[in-house]
C-alpha cells in the first residue's frame, strides 16, 4: 500500500511538472551523451593501440613468402637470419639503445590481431601465415628510433622497421583533445543538470506543499514524504541517460560499424558491444547526480 501510494505520488508529480521533467530529461541526455562520447573516444584509442603499443616502440617485421621489399627477395626469413637478427639486437653495439626486445611468432601475431580486430569481420579471413613474424623492441630513448632503423632495415630477412608511435601519436593527440573537449562540455552540462534537477524538485515541493504539510501533521515518515520527490528527479535523469545510451548506440551502430569500419578495414574500431558496456555506467551516473542533487535540495526546501 505504501509503495502504491509513493508510486501514485510520483506519477502525479511527474504529470504536474511535465515541462520541467522534460527539460531535466533533455539536459541529462545531452550531458551524458558528451560523457559517453569522451569515454568511447578513450576506448577507441585503446582499441587502436593494440597489444604492443604501450609495451614497445619499434617493430622489426621479418620477411614472409613473396614480400615485395628488396631485403625479402630471397623469400621468407630463414632460421639463420632470424638468429642473426636476434644476436644483433643483443650485441654490444645495439645494447645501449635497447631496453628489451621480444620475438613475436606468426601464431602470437594472430592471437594479438584477433584480440585487436575482434569487432571486425576481417578476423575470420586472416590466418597466421598471412601475418609477419617480428621482433618488438623497447627503446631506452624512444627518440633514437632512427638508429635501430638504420641498423636493421638493410639486414637480410628484415622486411621493414616501423616506429608505431609515429603513426598513431598524431591521431591519438587529436582524439585526446576531442575527448577533453567532450569532458569539458559534459562538466558544464552536468552542472546545468544538477541545478535543473534542484529547481524542478523545488518547484515540485512548492506545488505540493499542501500535501506534504498534511503528511507531516498526520505523522508520515520522512521517507514517505521525501521519496516521491527524489525518485521523480531520478526517474527523469535515468530517462535522459537511457536516451544518451541509445544515441551513442546509434552512432556506434550506423556510423562506426556501418560506415567507418567498412571504409577502413585496416583499423580496429569499437563496437556496439562497448556502448552496451558503457551504458549501465551512464545510467548510474544519471541516477547518482539526480539523487544527490534532489536530496540536497529537499533538505533546504522540504521541512519534515
Amino acid at each position: 500500500m505504501r509503495l502504491a501510494f509513493v508510486l501514485s505520488e510520483i506519477a502525479s508529480g511527474l504529470r504536474r511538472n511535465l515541462s520541467m521533467v522534460v527539460s531535466v530529461v533533455l539536459v541529462t541526455f545531452v550531458s551524458l551523451t558528451f560523457v559517453g562520447s569522451a569515454a568511447l573516444l578513450q576506448m577507441q584509442i585503446n582499441q587502436m593501440k593494440g597489444f604492443w603499443y604501450d609495451r614497445v616502440q619499434v617493430a622489426v617485421f621479418l620477411c614472409g613468402e613473396d614480400y615485395g621489399s628488396a631485403t625479402c627477395a630471397e623469400g621468407a626469413v630463414t632460421g639463420g637470419q632470424r638468429e642473426e637478427i636476434r644476436a644483433m639486437l643483443g650485441s654490444e653495439a645495439v645494447k645501449p639503445y635497447v631496453e628489451s626486445f621480444e620475438y613475436e611468432s606468426q601464431e602470437q601475431a594472430l592471437t594479438h590481431f584477433r584480440e585487436q580486430f575482434r569487432n571486425s569481420p576481417i578476423v575470420d579471413t586472416v590466418t597466421a601465415d598471412q601475418l609477419p613474424e617480428s621482433f618488438r623492441v623497447k627503446l631506452v630513448d624512444p627518440e633514437k628510433y632512427e638508429i635501430i632503423n638504420e641498423l636493421f632495415s638493410s639486414m637480410q630477412g628484415v622486411d621493414v622497421v616501423v616506429d608505431q608511435r609515429e603513426l598513431l601519436e598524431k591521431i591519438f593527440s587529436i582524439m585526446n583533445i576531442a575527448s577533453l573537449v567532450a569532458v569539458g562540455v559534459a562538466a558544464v552540462m552536468i552542472v546545468c543538470a544538477i541545478l535543473l534537477v534542484a529547481t524542478t524538485i523545488r518547484l515540485s515541493a512548492f506545488s505540493r506543499r499542501r500535501e506534504t504539510g498534511i503528511m507531516r501533521l498526520v505523522g508520515a515518515s520522512k521517507l514517505v514524504i521525501q521519496l516521491p520527490f527524489v525518485l521523480e528527479g531520478v526517474i527523469a535523469a535515468v530517462l535522459g541517460a537511457v536516451l544518451a545510451a541509445a544515441a551513442l548506440w546509434g552512432v556506434a551502430q550506423f556510423l562506426i560499424e556501418g560506415r567507418l569500419a567498412r571504409e577502413y578495414p585496416g583499423t580496429a574500431f569499437i563496437s556496439t558491444g562497448d556502448v552496451l558496456l558503457l551504458s549501465p555506467a551512464l545510467v548510474a551516473l544519471g541516477a547518482l547526480l539526480a539523487g544527490v542533487s534532489s536530496a540536497l535540495t529537499l533538505r533546504r526546501y522540504l521541512k519534515v
Binding site: F5, M215, V218, G219, V224
Partner: peptide, 28 residues
C-alpha cells in the same frame, strides 16, 4: 490529530480521499 481554522483539505481529492490520505501516508 490537528484541525485548523482554514480546514486545509486537498481540493483535488474527494471527501473519502482526503480522509483516506491520512491513512495512506502512514501505510495502512
Amino acid at each position: 490529530g490537528v484541525v485548523f481554522q482554514d480546514f486545509r483539505l486537498l481540493p483535488n481529492k474527494d471527501v473519502f480521499g482526503n480522509v483516506a490520505f491520512a491513512m495512506q501516508v502512514i501505510g495502512k
